[in-house]
Amino acid sequence: MATLVPPSPRHPQGLIPSGELWLPRASLSACLRGTIVRTTVGYSLSDAQRINRFPATPLCSLSWWFEGRSEALVADRPDAVPDLHSPREAYPGRWVLAGPQTRPSASYCAEPTHAMMVMFMPDALHQLTGIEPEALTDRMVDAQTVLPRDWIAMCEDVQRQLDNAARMDCLESFLEPCWQACRPTQRLSTQRYGDWAVHLAQRAAISGPGRSLRQLERRIKRWAGLPLRELRGFGKAEQAFFDALAAESLHGAVPWADVAASAGFSDQPHLCRVTRRITGFAPQALFDGICTEEPFWVYRIWT
């Protein structure tokens, strides 16, 4: 079954240890990137601590709420970071399906909330459901309007389970036979974004008629919702994130110029631009937020 990742021993003092990361069983490792669970039930939070910050992502997601509910915080400009004064919008439907997101996002939980977000590799979601991620890029929709009927029954079954382990078992027991029946024959052993982008390009090159660059790009965008160039950018940004964590552990500070070079960026300003585009924050501000602020919990559980 899915594996619950132990809490980080570096969890910041004074912040609630409420985020969980579940890694999929081995048979689903090329289908699911992971599952994030968050509960604030039983904790006392300030208004500012009720914000949840999420990076842009090439992944698709399916979300449940078991207690409470979240609202989207809407930025007034594409390059702005939403805050407590930003307008709020209700998420559509009981369960929400989201496609790849090219901009960072934020939500707000006005009351104690317990929610779960399952993160699918976009090409796997396409294989499983026939839904093209490109049609969902930068969108969040009512899952009941787009998912097949058996998926809606699965969503209801997950909703009825009594704890997170049972929810994960219910989800994976449904997905495993579906994935075994439709998964590509070319296997992928790792799920770092950079490796996945390479794998996707290789698959596109040997799938179906047509080998021109334009045909390959169209195939990749149909499967993943984003062009290959953007997928490679996510790969470099992820590599920089983990390189920065390693450098901070060793030296107590992050040499951002070295991190930029090792991750394949042209220079440190290039890294800063990409980090702002994906997270809304400059690299050091993002690092400081991860270490000291509740809304960055989703970044912490990946460390």
Score class of each variant (00 low, 15 high):
Pro87Asp: 06
Gly14Glu: 05
Trp223Asp: 14
Gln186Ile: 08
Leu175Lys: 06
Cys170Lys: 14
Val118Lys: 10
Leu162Phe: 09
Thr113Phe: 09
Trp22Asp: 01
Met154Pro: 01
Leu226Asn: 09
Phe54Gly: 03
Leu125Ala: 01
Trp64Asp: 01
Leu213Ala: 14
Gln127Leu: 10
Ile278Asn: 04
Gly289Cys: 04
Asp83Ala: 10
Gln268Phe: 07
Ser27Tyr: 08
Leu136Gln: 02
Glu176His: 10
Asp123Phe: 13
Thr39Trp: 03
Glu132Cys: 08
Thr292Gly: 04
Met119Phe: 09
Ala2Leu: 06
Ala247Phe: 10
Leu73Asp: 02
Ser70Leu: 15
Cys60Gln: 04
Pro6His: 04
Pro78Met: 04
Thr35Ala: 12
Phe287Gly: 03
Pro24Arg: 07
Pro55Phe: 01
Asn52Pro: 00
Ser173Thr: 10
His114Glu: 13
Pro9Ala: 04
Leu45Pro: 00
Thr279Cys: 12
Cys60Phe: 09
Gln239Tyr: 09
Ile220Gly: 04
Arg160Asn: 09
Ala261Arg: 12
Ala98Val: 02
Leu23Asn: 04
Thr185Asn: 11
Leu15Met: 05
Arg276Glu: 15
Ala165Phe: 14
Arg50Gln: 04
Gln191Met: 13
Trp302Phe: 15
Trp223Gln: 07
Gln180His: 11
Ala247Val: 08
Tyr299His: 14
Gln49Phe: 02
Glu67Lys: 15
Gly252Met: 06
Ser44Trp: 07
Tyr43Thr: 06
Glu67Trp: 15
Met1Val: 11
Arg10Leu: 12
Arg38Val: 09
Glu248Pro: 00
Ile51Val: 11
Gly42Thr: 03
Glu20Thr: 02
Val298Tyr: 10
Pro92Arg: 03
Ala263Phe: 07
Ala261Cys: 09
Val259Gln: 04
Cys291Lys: 13
Ala201Arg: 12
Ser262Phe: 06
Gly280Ile: 01
Leu32Ser: 00
Trp297Leu: 11
Glu156His: 15
Gln144Ser: 12
Trp196Ser: 10
Arg10Ile: 00
His11Gly: 03
Gly194Gln: 12
Gln13Pro: 12
Thr102Lys: 09
Ser8Trp: 07
Pro184Thr: 10
Trp95Ser: 05
Val254Arg: 03
